[in-house]
Simulated assay, not measured.
Amino acid sequence: MVQQDNKEKQEVVSSPPTGMQVVWREFKKDKVAMFSLVALVITIVSIFIAAYFFIDQEEAMKISLRGKFAPPGADYWLGADVGGRDVFGQLIIGAKNSLLIAIVVTVITGAFGIFVGLVCGYFGGWIDNLFMRIIDFFITIPSTMLIIVVITVIPKYNAWAFIAIVSVFLWTGTARLVRSKSLSESRRDYVNASKTLGTNDFVILLKEVMPNISSILIVELTLNFAGNIGIETGLTFLGYGLPPETPSLGMLVSNSRSPLVIENYWWAWLPAALLILFLMLCINYVGQALRRSADARQRLG
């Protein structure tokens, strides 16, 4: 009986850790990444709760010339901008819009890029050649400039049209990464064994190949999320993002283009700039921890 218990303990000790155990172990070692993860989740959840249940967008965007550049106080928690609009309300609504756009763009480009990458890497042949030439074309031309050109051509657009335009040009990086990973995975013995058994190709892709590269996909989508926030705020700052009537972090930061505002009315742009910086840092620290977890998982097999 004692020998059997010892044998079971040895098996438990020798069994490799699961993917979530590797991730949790990496976050426990990196206190900055753990703090970033907790702070990021709390911030995003708080923004969406406040935007949907406590902040009225029409009230936040109401113009009041008497409140022009009003400093932070009881009437305006974070002051007012050049139109007398509440900066705090715009910050919450704008952060919600920017995060929602980044999430939707990440999901769309991630899903399409993963699908194309898996199919190209697994099947190869003319499918791989076709999509690789398309990807090469998109990569050789600056995507930001193409987005600006398309937005300039379209006279009127809303947030969903902006998401569609951006998504068209941002799926190529994910597809290229997934294609290289699935290309190596599709040559492994377990895939050949499944093919010999007559398993459907798409079943192999979804249930065998994709789970084995899931750690890489999580890292890629996390870093893409941060990049998409930057793209939306950057384009809006330049005047090629969301329409002016739609609040966003980029619109608030665009107030900093005036030297007078930068010097005398810091509350009109600094909160949005600090929130963008905070989100970017947290997402990147979380992404770095996930990347180390993926590398550790690959070493452990």
Rank of each mutant, 00 (worst) to 15 (best):
Q3H: 08
Q4M: 11
D5F: 06
K7H: 11
K9H: 04
E11S: 12
P16M: 07
T18L: 10
G19P: 00
F27C: 03
K28Q: 14
A33M: 12
S36E: 02
V41P: 06
I42T: 09
I44H: 05
A51G: 12
F54P: 04
M61N: 03
K68F: 03
K68G: 00
F69C: 03
G73M: 08
G79H: 10
G79C: 12
G79R: 10
D81Y: 08
G83D: 08
R85K: 07
I92H: 12
S98P: 05
L99K: 06
L99N: 10
L100Q: 11
I103D: 07
I103L: 15
V105W: 08
I114S: 01
I114L: 01
F115E: 00
V119D: 01
Y122N: 02
F123C: 00
I127V: 13
L130A: 11
D136G: 15
F137H: 00
F138N: 09
I139F: 13
T140I: 15
I141L: 13
T144W: 03
T144G: 03
M145G: 03
M145Y: 13
I147W: 01
T152F: 01
I154A: 02
P155K: 09
P155Q: 13
Y157D: 01
A159Q: 13
W160Y: 15
W160D: 05
A161D: 14
I163T: 11
I165D: 02
I165E: 02
S167Y: 06
F169T: 01
A175Q: 12
V178Q: 04
S180E: 07
K181Y: 03
S184K: 04
R187Q: 14
Y190H: 13
T196D: 09
T196Q: 13
T196E: 13
T196N: 08
G198E: 11
G198I: 14
I204W: 10
I204T: 11
L205C: 07
E208D: 15
V209W: 12
P211Q: 10
S214I: 14
S214D: 01
S215M: 14
I218C: 10
I218F: 14
V219A: 02
V219G: 02
F225D: 02
F225M: 09
G227A: 12
G227C: 07
G230P: 00
I231F: 08
T236A: 09
T236R: 02
F237L: 05
F237G: 00
P243C: 03
E245M: 07
S248A: 12
L249D: 10
L252M: 15
V253N: 10
S254D: 07
N255H: 13
R257Q: 15
S258A: 11
P259H: 11
P259K: 10
I262G: 00
E263C: 00
N264L: 05
W267V: 06
A268T: 11
A268C: 08
W269H: 04
A272F: 04
L274S: 13
L275R: 01
L279H: 07
M280H: 00
M280G: 12
M280R: 01
N284M: 06
V286P: 09
R292L: 10
A294W: 01
D295R: 06
L300M: 15
G301P: 09
